[in-house]
């Protein structure tokens, strides 16, 4: 269970509060106006921003003292998810062992995950030789390898076209099912939220509201969401 316990986040005069929790296996869309603090919320879970007060807890344990890499979390950023100077296999291998001293079994694992996300045979390529969709798939493949119980998506597919994005969301759903992870996905698009997430967190006016049923939320949007949807 991922719990936000009276969390107050503060960055440069901007404040965001959150006080709710997500059950294991939950899939949540995070939606709200630009600059409302969606990425900030994810940063607090990933460990890039310490709360001013309150705690982020995983199964009742405070994540505060843990370094980002030690948290039970995988995060996909908007971009820079891959190191450009490393090959695809190496970028994926980082998910298994950060020092890349992989065993034969782990190398095999990387190969099979590449195959699974449709990148078979591309392990020796560098990111510059890949398309945007392939980069997204590679990043997801690494999430699959890391198999952390929390998966955070900070709009990693925002730059992709509708078809590609749909493909990625299907892949995310598979990854989530495989790993049983809680997924929090920042999105601008109500369709993504409806298609992917059972619940939605609305971030607006300094508050990350408790998750609500996505279909119900969009059927009867509160004022802040109506303003955003226009």
């Amino acid at each position: 269970m991922l719990q936000f316990d009276k969390v107050v986040l503060a960055v440069d005069g901007f404040r965001l509060t959150a006080d709710w929790s997500l059950p294991a296996g939950a899939r949540v869309a995070v939606i709200g106006p630009s600059g409302a603090g969606k990425s900030t919320l994810l940063s607090a879970v990933a460990g890039f921003l310490a709360p001013q007060s309150g705690q982020v807890l995983w199964h009742g344990a405070d994540l505060g003292p843990m370094d980002p890499g030690a948290r039970p979390v995988t995060i996909l950023f908007q971009d820079q998810n891959l190191f450009p100077h490393l090959t695809l296999s190496q970028n994926l291998g980082l998910g298994l062992r950060p020092d890349l001293r992989l065993s034969a079994g782990q190398i095999q694992q990387v190969e099979s995950v590449l195959d699974r996300v449709g990148l078979a045979g591309m392990g020796t390529r560098k990111p510059a030789q890949l398309s945007g969709g392939q980069i997204g798939r590679a990043a997801l493949a690494r999430a699959l390898l890391r198999a952390r119980p929390v998966l955070l998506l900070d709009e990693p597919f925002a730059a992709l076209g509708p078809a590609l994005k749909a493909e990625m969301l299907t892949l995310v759903a598979e990854v989530a099912k495989d790993t049983g992870a809680v997924v929090m996905m920042v999105t601008h698009d109500p369709q993504d939220a409806l298609a992917f997430a059972g619940q939605t967190v609305l971030v607006a006016n300094g508050v990350a509201h408790p998750p609500q049923d996505t279909a119900a939320l969009f059927a009867n949007p509160p004022q802040a969401l109506r303003d955003y949807l226009g």
């Binding site: 990933a46 460990g47 890039f48 370094d67 980002p68 890499g69 950023f77 820079q80 980082l94 950060p98």
Partner: peptide
């Protein structure tokens, strides 16, 4: 550019030096 990615992958110490 890569501080967050490295941190999120728990890439640090000598491995970070060598790989990043």
């Amino acid at each position: 550019d890569y501080g967050r990615l490295s941190a999120s992958l728990d890439l640090r110490g000598l491995a970070w030096l060598r790989l990043v």
